[in-house]
């Protein structure tokens, strides 16, 4: 297994999906500059399943936002799928997120007034997929997480585990290269969390790159490798 902190030849390698080269992120909080992410190197290969652990406020979410092209680094360079996305225009970043990255959040972030099917359709809508095809693919994605009989249900009519599976279906429906999951089991009981994790692991086995943020060592143990985030710095556990 490769060393994720060794980016030598990583950028040029066909195996690399996400490469952070000295990437840092600092914020201004009033007059004070806060280094949420200290300059770090990271090389994520296609098919990697990484877990990132760390205490609250350690910078895990900032890392996830940068990796998910939701935030721009203030230092360094981020290569995703061979393209430098750290200076990409906002419009193109939206397309990258739509085509390449799937998100799963701790609090599901589903549209409360829409059915499970419409929630799963959402990324396809922004991808310009025709309506009929959207319906088919969203139905398949829901079926793949065991919710084929819940397509018309709204989030309020689903259990927490089911809601997270809808969110997972939404992330998977566009067949992303990179799946970013932030505490995907944080609000679920053990059984429901297990089902979600199993589905994520299954995608990893099929070749999807997964980066999972968690507090839970048992959840992290499902990943191929665990990294530890402390004070904005990423390292081995």
């Amino acid at each position: 297994m490769h060393d994720p902190f060794d980016i030598t030849d990583c950028a040029a390698g066909a195996e690399a999906l996400a490469v952070l080269e000295g990437v840092g992120r600092s914020y201004r909080s009033g007059a004070v500059a806060v280094d949420a992410l200290k300059p770090l190197d990271l090389c994520v290969h296609r098919g990697d399943f990484l877990a990132v652990m760390g205490p609250s406020g350690s910078g895990k979410s900032t890392l996830l936002h940068v990796l998910g092209c939701l935030d721009r680094p203030t230092a360094g360079r981020y290569l995703l799928n061979g393209h430098d996305v750290s200076r990409m225009p906002d419009r193109e970043l939206a397309e990258v997120r739509n085509a390449t990255i799937g998100f799963v959040f701790q609090r599901f972030h589903l549209l409360a007034d829409e059915s499970a099917l419409r929630n799963v359709e959402l990324p396809l809508l922004y991808g310009g997929v025709p309506r009929a095809e959207r319906r088919v693919r969203a139905s398949e994605a829901l079926a793949s997480v065991g919710l084929e009989d819940r397509v018309a249900h709204r989030p309020g009519e689903l259990s927490g585990g089911e809601q997270q599976r809808v969110a997972l279906a939404r992330a998977l429906v566009k067949r992303p290269r990179l799946l970013l999951a932030d505490e995907p089991t944080g609000n679920l009981d053990t059984a429901a969390g297990g089902r979600v994790l199993e589905r994520i692991a299954e995608e990893s086995r099929r070749g999807m790159t997964v980066i999972l943020i968690t507090h839970d060592p048992e959840v992290a143990a499902r990943a191929g490798r665990t990294l530890m985030m402390r004070d904005g710095t990423l390292g081995h556990p």
Binding site: D90, R91, A94, R97, F103, H109, L111, L122
Partner: peptide
């Protein structure tokens, strides 16, 4: 925020 995550542009 969710729509932006899923690929919505600012203009969308």
């Amino acid at each position: 925020a969710l729509r932006r995550c899923e690929g919505a542009r600012r203009s969308d």
